[in-house]
Nucleic acid binder design. Sequence first.
RNA 1: CGGGGCGUAGCGCAGCCUGGUAGCGCAUCUGGUUUGGGACCAGAGGGUCGGGUGUUCGAAUCACCCCGCCCCGACCA
Length: 571
Amino acid sequence: MRYSKLFIPTLRDDPADAEVISHKLLLRAGYIRRVTSGVYDYLPLALRVLRKIEAVIRQELNRSGAQELLMPMVQPCELWEKSGRMEKYGPELLRFKDRHGHDSCLGPTHEEVISDLVARELRSYKQLPMNLYQIQTKFRDEIRPRFGLMRGREFIMKDGYSFHADDACLAAEYDNMFATYCRIFERFGLNFRPVEADCGSIGGNKTHEFHVLAESGEDLIAHCSGCDYAANVEKAVSERSVQAFEAATLQSVDTPNVTSAEDVAALLSLEPSALLKTVVYRVIGGENDATVIAACVRGDDQLQEIKLIHALAADGVEMATDEEVQSIGGVSGFIGPQGLSCKLLLDQSLNEAAGLVAGANKKDAHVTGLDTARDLDAASFADLRETRAGDDCLKCGSAIELSRGIEVGQVFALGTQYTESMEVMFQNQQGKRAVATMGCYGIGVSRLMAAVVEQCNDDSGISWPPELAPFQLGLITMGKSEEVMQASETIYQQLLDAGIDVLWDERKERPGVKFKDAELIGLPMQVVIGDRGLKAGLVEMGLRSGERNEVALTDIVNLVIDQLKTSGSTN
RNA sequence: CGGGGCGUAGCGCAGCCUGGUAGCGCAUCUGGUUUGGGACCAGAGGGUCGGGUGUUCGAAUCACCCCGCCCCGACCA
């Protein structure tokens, strides 16, 4: 491809409204442009990268026994009514009526459509297992799209669904997909980590997320320094040794205007872990729907809301308003577990704990000497605290570390959650009707492009892994002499003939401009032909990393081929 | 939706406080000189100042309303 014919609108300055590196660089290097909130154009360079990402995914999935199909983006609402997700999915599901008044929606995911398809065609256990996937544009009307491609409303996703006659078969496919995902992310040269995760709104019972480690990641993940335990903090479990405090009688203590756990601890010269922190929520969904509840963790711990939601078997929780706090007998700023007229949950680390300090439910007062076993008989215990760096791993006892991650993939063992409601049935070996069991597997394709940029960049721009670069090679012509143009054209043709994806920068630009653009765009290798070297029969071969060598003009094509082989770049 | 910031030429910004009819850098176009790391000189084009209403002799500037964007919280690939 000739540079002058390619649509690559590069920018000299960082766009003002981009925050994270991938967003800035993809905009600056001419890969993407915003159309509307959370919706982007993929310009020619971006499309090339996307196609390469897709190619790797297809290759590995096909090799693992999955098969590709393509489902529609527009879906009838009936399917969502049938699965019961119409209400649960909420406003993220973009709904509309067609001209006949038929309720439709844009597919944010395809469990319903695939289950409906399979339900119609599945008769016998002999047709199972099967694993079907697609690479499709999804639409989720996100509350807050941000960070460019990282969290768009419209995005490209690979989603796969497997169906099985029994759970053992599902478990085997889960492991198969897990391994396949590891291979895919390894081929992208990413620093990633599979982690145990919460099932979220998709449901199911077993799931792992795949996170690319990056500062800009939206998720916090906990991983053990001594073994392979890793989990999203929404799910991570760990222990820490907390000093036991001496049992004492209950006493009230004045704490005028001192509300935060840290400040109360400082005022009373106590360890923050001696504090018992009480947070009040209103429950959404489940049997406690719309009621107000209180949850307690130690003063130096944070409450993990996802864990609380699970402990309550609810759909969600929301911080209580001051009025709601009052309605259960609490006083904002001085809330304590005693005497509240509501359901009370304590973190399990508080089981049998004594000598604690907690809010007194009176303005400007706390109580000391609180004993959870003695003073709080209505409380139930659950794991509610968020894992902290330095905690002990439950598996091996080593220290837990925390990192930020970008979730680029997730595998779920769903079980029969959708197959039951969608009636995906078949006749089993015993001749009986049975419900199929199901798994689903996602990879955020467009997000992956952003995640790779987050990990592969430097001050000059993007630095693509060879397998994903939009072109394998940049051929840069310097000078305007007839000779150098002619020599460039010859090499360009030879490279093309050798099947190499080359971008020939034949623009009438100064050398600096061409080098800057090549580096911004992130091409992994460059060949430079200039008047100076040409006289001596030499050209320059350089890598994005900076390494450069003068080589004979006559050798260049073969050297490039060798280099591409060793770097593992495919076309 | 709640909280914070912002909207002036393709991009990055100044001007606004204290009203007088729009400016800088980059990019673009023309001509010339340059040509191994984002050149220089000369000239040119390009703006409903996000939109509306109001105040005023006069509004980018002041007031009110609306729209859009970015950041922080709940969602997730």
